[in-house]
Structures are given as structure tokens and as C-alpha cells.
Amino acid sequence: MKEENKKVQILEFEKPIYKIQDKIEELKKTSADTNINYDSEIKKLEEQTKIYKKELYQKLEPYQKLQIARHPQRPNFMDYVHFICEDFIELHGDRHGFDDKAIIGGVASIEGRAVMLIGTMKGKSTKENLECNFGMPQPQGYRKALRLFEHANRFNLPIITLIDTMGAYPGMMAEETGQGEAIATNLKEMAKLEVPTIAVVTGEGCSGGALGLAVSNKVMILEHAYYTVISPEGCASILWKDSSMARVATDALKITGDDLLQYGIVDEVIKEPTGGAHYNAQEMAQNLKKSLVESLKEFEGMSPEELRNQRYSKFRAMGVFAQ
């Protein structure tokens, strides 16, 4: 992948680590220039960095995770296709006059298993992002996904969806052609599928736009990804009337994998490489692949009826109320 050679963009909260690392480099250089031995100092500093790094990444605040989830270099759908699939044949179009590039799907092979792989696509450059509309699907994208769900159902292919979206696109055409209806129909039709369905939130899982691909037998989330009903910025501007309260809203919304696991909204949190998926896309993809293959095995041998019942009861049980 081209991106591997690129320098990783450092997030604000990571800067202290890189300051120490710069200092180490500086010492190494001075040591070479002046022949004074700074080895012990360097070693000490390196130890310190290691400890600091470990502490920092182990105790990430939700708001810091949010920034990792949104990192511009975070692996996208095509990166995962590259690392996970032996084969991938993309299938285009909703058959009603549109091919939404924000949702990509196709038949694929993962460790010898044939599956239908569908996901939202985010670009890494402005050009790519303009093409895929920054990963925000139009109704036609959801309808393309629905067509592929039905195709998979016909040919008994398990369905894997990878989700990383700020939400369904809020535009004029989207409203005119039924953004709400497209998502709602997917929710309803996903409930009826007779093949195993597995959804993974790989980055941003915002609102109905994410759920429209995630009424699945198993829902997983990457360690630093988030899944929420509204973006923290949106929530802050509505409830606090102040979008700068986004950090507080992020905490309040309980959007991290561990929180969601506790409320039964996701079934598994998939570990990311130290610092986040963008530091090592390949390692991330391997972790993801392992979880996907294991999940596929879980549903092997279940009848269509059992699959539907499992999915139905899972979502039926969601919600907390008094009675």
C-alpha cells in the first residue's frame, strides 16, 4: 500500500511522545558529532517513552478515541479488502439508475470462504473523498446494499458489512429520493435474511446511516471506533446549544466499544495496534480477519430459521426501561 511509506499524522494528544522521541534523536546526533557517550540517557529516555506510550494508549479518553476513529489515515474499506480477501469482485449499482460510491460491495473470498462483503468507503485524499462523498451514502447506496443482501441471500453467501461513516448524507436529493425510507427498508429486510450477517464498525458508526448496514447476527467494533445515535458535535449543539461542548457530549453519549459491550449493543471489541489502526493497517486487518473467520464459524450449521431467530431476539432485547 502506498500509504505505508507516508508519515503518520500525529494527533494533538500524542505530541508529548514525539517530543521525547525528537529529544532522543537529538541526543543520538550530538553523541555522534561530539563522541560523548549518551547511551545511558538515551536508554532511559527510550524506556520512559515506552512506559508513557503504554499508559497513554491504554487509558485513552473517549474524545481521544474519537480522534483516532476519525484519523484521515485510518484504513478504509479498500485497505481491508486488500489485506483480508484472496478475491474480491466488486458489484456496482442499485439497478435504478445510480451507483453510489460511498457504499462498495462485492463477492469475496476470506480464507477460502465465499462471502458478500459490503462497506462504506472513505477516501484518503480530497479527490478520493469527493468521489465517495466522504463516506456519506445517498439512499441509492443503501438500495445497492439491499440488492446485494438479497443476492447473497439467494446464493447462500454470508454477509459481512464494514462500517465507517459520519452518517447518511443530508442533502436535497437524499431527502427527495427517500433517505429515511432507504435506511428503514434495509433495517426491515436485514431482519429477514437467511444467511449469517456480521457487521463491524471500523471507524465512525454514526446514527441511522451506520445502522442501515448493521442489523446483523453479530455486531463487532474496533477498539477505537465509535457507534452512536448522533455525532458528539451534533449532540452538543442541540442539547448544550454549543458545539464546543463536544468533548463533554462524547463522554455523556457512551460511544466507545467497552461501553457498548456493557449495554449489549456490540458483541465483541476487536483489538487495534498500539496507537490505533492507522499505525499498522496490516496488523489491524489480520486482527479483523481472525475475528471475522471465527464469527463465520460460530454461525456455521445454523438453519435459516435459527439465524433469523437469533438476530430477531438480539435486537428485540435492546433497550432499558422500567416496568
Partner: peptide
């Protein structure tokens, strides 16, 4: 919003 992802899941539940 006060129920965050739990409220999101009501969309799935009712559609099912």
C-alpha cells in the same frame, strides 16, 4: 439523544 446507542437500536427493533 439521552439514550444514545440504545435509542438507535430502537430503530432496528421496531423495523424487525
Amino acid at each position: 439523544m439521552q439514550e444514545s446507542a440504545l435509542s438507535l437500536m430502537q430503530m432496528a427493533k421496531t423495523s424487525c
